[in-house]
């Protein structure tokens, strides 16, 4: 879709674009190319000499069991977060779409965690799960489970998952509700006249019609779990205990700023960028398909 040409000026469009483009070039494109460049270099510990090493940094990464397990952990984490946050949000959205009275009130109460910073969400839940005083941990103790995310890796993993899911439900809820409300009522009425009950209607009409929304959200949720959860991890577990919560984006930061292993960190950046690009391409394909309707 294009506008008919309406304004002509030799310099104005460039002037209007300049600030955005300069920032993009200086703070996005240049650093990204630096990461790409660094990822094929090996630098000595003082950063004085560097040597071109082809893909050595990458092969080293995939031979490193820490990195491979971090990769697997991140995959499990993002599947869990996307699945839970989307499932719960869909359930709530379907219910909110069903009720007539009070839907707006429920919506107001459900959307605000969107505004909570991941790090703050982490702080909230770390308090809830504090082994000694946390109310949830206390409840679990009384049920006989000895919760301690400071020592037990799986507990720490559960903690960041809960915090990440809790924060993301609102976002998914907004989209699902919008998608559900966009379904023409006449379609559901026609199905009801054809004798389809609520469950059947949901499966045969609602689900297919919101599948584009679901697909979009799946990509967004995976990106969220991959990147935006840094704050949650950093503020709650700092990757521990024993790297049990060290997801990829945390590892990039940790290896780059704490470990000062620039080549490895750059290679990790490049891998993450590739993942984002792949996800974006997938999402773009979906947008194209939607346009084709």
């Amino acid at each position: 879709m294009e506008k008919r040409v309406v304004f002509r000026s030799a310099w104005l469009p460039y002037a209007l674009l300049a600030p955005q483009l300069v920032i993009t070039a200086v703070f996005f494109v240049w650093p990204a190319s630096q990461a790409l460049y660094q990822s094929v270099l090996l630098e000595d510990a003082f950063g004085l000499k560097s040597q071109f090493v082809w893909a050595d940094n990458f092969t080293a990464l995939f031979r490193n069991s820490d990195y491979v397990s971090s990769f697997g952990r991140t995959a499990v984490f993002s599947i869990l977060v996307a699945g839970l946050a989307m499932g719960i949000a869909l359930l709530l959205a379907v219910m909110a779409d069903h009720v007539i009275r009070g839907a707006t009130t429920y919506k107001t109460f459900l959307i605000w965690p969107y505004a909570v910073a991941p790090a703050v969400a982490g702080a909230l839940w770390v308090f809830m799960f504090n082994p000694r005083i946390g109310i949830v941990a206390y409840a679990m103790h009384s049920f006989g489970y000895d919760w301690n995310h400071q020592i037990k890796g799986e507990d720490a993993f559960a903690l960041i998952t809960v915090a990440a899911v809790w924060k993301q439900i609102s976002y998914n809820f907004v989209f699902f509700l919008a998608g559900l409300q966009a379904i023409p009522k006449s379609l559901l009425e026609a199905a009801a006249i054809d004798g389809a009950g609520p469950g059947k209607r949901f499966r045969s009409i609602v689900l297919p019609l919101i599948s584009p929304t679901s697909f979009f959200l799946l990509v967004v949720n995976i990106v969220y779990a991959f990147f935006d959860t840094f704050g949650i991890v950093h503020a709650t577990t700092s990757g521990g205990p024993a790297k049990a919560t060290e997801i990829l984006v945390y590892k990039v930061f940790n290896d780059g700023f704490i470990g000062l292993d620039l080549g490895s960190s750059a290679a990790q950046s490049v891998i993450l960028m590739t993942i984002v690009i792949l996800l974006t391409v997938v999402q773009f394909k979906y947008i194209e398909r939607k346009v084709a309707y």
Binding site: V249, F253, S269
Partner: peptide, 29 residues
């Protein structure tokens, strides 16, 4: 609202920023 050389290039350059979250390129940035 304008047609000018490199219009699409500018568009794609801006689009690329979508693919580069700050967490990913944190060290060089």
């Amino acid at each position: 609202y304008f047609r000018f050389p490199f219009r699409m290039a500018a568009f794609w350059l801006i689009f690329m920023t979508l693919m580069l979250p700050v967490e990913v390129r944190i060290v060089p940035t």
